[in-house]
Amino acid sequence: MKISKELLDELLKGVERPEDLLGDAGLMKELKIKLVERMLGAERARLRRGQRSFAFPAAIDPPRRSSFTWWIDRRR
Rank of each mutant, 00 (worst) to 15 (best):
V36F: 02
A25W: 00
R65M: 05
G14F: 09
E19V: 08
Q51S: 07
A55S: 07
E6W: 03
M28E: 07
V15M: 03
P18E: 15
V36R: 15
P62M: 04
Q51C: 02
G23C: 01
P18A: 13
R65S: 10
G41I: 02
R49F: 01
M1E: 14
L40K: 13
R46G: 07
D20H: 12
D73L: 06
R65Y: 03
T69N: 10
L7I: 14
D61R: 14
D73H: 02
G26W: 07
R17M: 07
L12D: 03
Q51K: 12
R52I: 11
I33Q: 15
L22I: 04
W71M: 12
M39W: 05
P62K: 00
A25S: 06
G23R: 00
K2M: 08
I60P: 01
R74C: 04
L40Y: 01
L11N: 07
R74Q: 08
S53P: 03
G41K: 06
W70P: 05
V15I: 14
K29C: 02
A55L: 11
K34R: 13
V36D: 03
S67Y: 06
S67H: 06
K2C: 04
E43M: 02
D61A: 14
G41R: 12
R76M: 07
D20P: 00
D20E: 03
D61L: 09
F68H: 11
V15C: 12
I60M: 12
G14V: 09
G14Q: 14
K34T: 09
L7Y: 01
K5A: 11
R44F: 09
A42E: 15
P57H: 06
D9A: 12
R38N: 11
K29R: 12
G41P: 05
I72E: 08
R74D: 02
R65Q: 10
D73S: 10
R49V: 02
R65D: 11
G26N: 04
S4E: 03
V36N: 09
D9K: 12
W70T: 03
E19Q: 12
P18Q: 14
L47K: 13
A55N: 08
E37D: 11
I60V: 07
W71V: 09
K5I: 09
R49Q: 15
L12V: 04
F56K: 13
L11I: 14
R52G: 00
L8P: 04
G41E: 14
G50I: 05
R76C: 00
E16R: 13
A58N: 08
D61G: 11
D73Q: 13
R46E: 12
F54T: 10
E43G: 05
P57L: 00
S4I: 05
S53N: 10
A55F: 08
